[in-house]
Every structure is written in C-alpha cells, then in structure tokens.
Amino acid sequence: MIALKDISKSFNGRPVLQNVNATFNKGKCSFVIGASGGGKSVLMKCMVGLLSQDSGVIDFDGRDFLNLDYYKKKELRQEIGMLFQGGALFDSLSVEDNVAFPLRMFTDFSNSEILDRVNFCLKRVKLENVNKLFPSNISGGMKKRVGIARSIAMNPKYLFCDEPNSGLDPLTSRVIDALIMEITEEYGITTIVNSHDIKSVFDMGDHIVFIYQGKSLWEGTKDDLRNSGNKELELFIKASEF
C-alpha cells in the first residue's frame, strides 16, 4: 500500500501540486487521471523519488521514502518497477540484455538462471524471438512491452506506469492494459497508472484519483465515476467521451 499525505511541490515558486492525498492498495490497479499539465507526471516522479516533494509524506507500507538512508532507499527502489512513457530502454543493449539488466545488477544468479527469467518475462508480455533485437529496431508497442518485462524482472511490489497507452493504437492499448491488469492481480502488485485514456479507466480502474490543477479533487471507483457529483470531473469525462 502506498499512502500520500499532503504532498505539495512547486517549481520556482509556482505550485504544481497542492496537498495531494491518496491511497493506493495492493493487488489493485489505481488510476491517476486529470487534464494535461495537471501534475500527474510530477506526482509520479515524486512517488518514485526522481523529484522530492516540498512537504508531505509518501509512505510505502510504513516506509517514508524521503527519510530513508542511502542503502534503505536503494533497497526500496529495487521493489519498484516503472514503465516510462517512451519506454526508456537502454538503447545500447539488446532486448534480452535490457530485461536482464536489473538481474545482472542486483542478483547473483548465474547466466542461465538470468536467461530463464528473461525468457519468462518476455513470454509473459507475449514477446518471443525478439531477444537479440535492439530497441531502435522494434515498434513503439513492443518497446512498451519490453519496458513492462524489464520492470517485472525483479518481481516488484510497486509498479508505476506513466501513460502506458499514449501513442498506441486502440487495439495495442487494450493489450497493454490487459497485461498490466493481469500482472497486478497475479503478483499482488500495487500498481499506479497515469492516464488520459478514459476507456482504460472505465475498463480497469479499481480505484481512481482525479487530479485537477495540482489538487486531488476526487477519489473513488469506476462505478462511481459517472455520478461523482464533482463538476470538474464530470466535465473531464464528458469531454473525453465525446
């Protein structure tokens, strides 16, 4: 479980997040939705520790990220997987080496054990026979899938996805959504997805947080989404469905 308490963050005096509160549960796919520029990416970067919030607490099952020492942070980070918008694959490494990277870095597995794990992860995201290709030679959707494979290689407890569907066709989007959902439930991961894609939110939003101009305005499930009683959220949904 990840709990956010009163997260605020500003850049050069301009507030981007203001007292954001939210809770994300284990084994559930939680969505953070909101208009462009609302602060979703900044919030996610704070959660994974790429940015540090000005005030507030981010609590990972009782561990307050900001107050951990260097080694404890490292430990926690190995429990985090993240899927970047552009994939962020290492372009000097082949698909196989990309997925193997965290294993080579942090485990003492033998080469064959690592390969087994890599092949398992690639199979899990339905990619086969691409082991030796380089990121520049595969499509955007495949990059996303390799990204997922890499982020689950270490059996993460927490999975973050920043707009997993952007730039993909509707069909591939559904495939990626389904994958994230399956993996979350199968391994009991705490998954957080930033999305514009209202379709995926209605499909799989066990839990939804609506961010509006840096504030968390609403929290609920997909079933309450249509009658949330929140003006901004209703506008947002109407606009996206149109």
Partner: peptide, 9 residues
C-alpha cells in the same frame, strides 16, 4: 534512461 537507472536503484 538515466531516470530508469535511478528508479531501479
């Protein structure tokens, strides 16, 4: 890619 490295720890 640098961010991805950082996140991995």
């Amino acid at each position: 890619q640098i961010d991805a490295l950082e996140i991995m720890g």
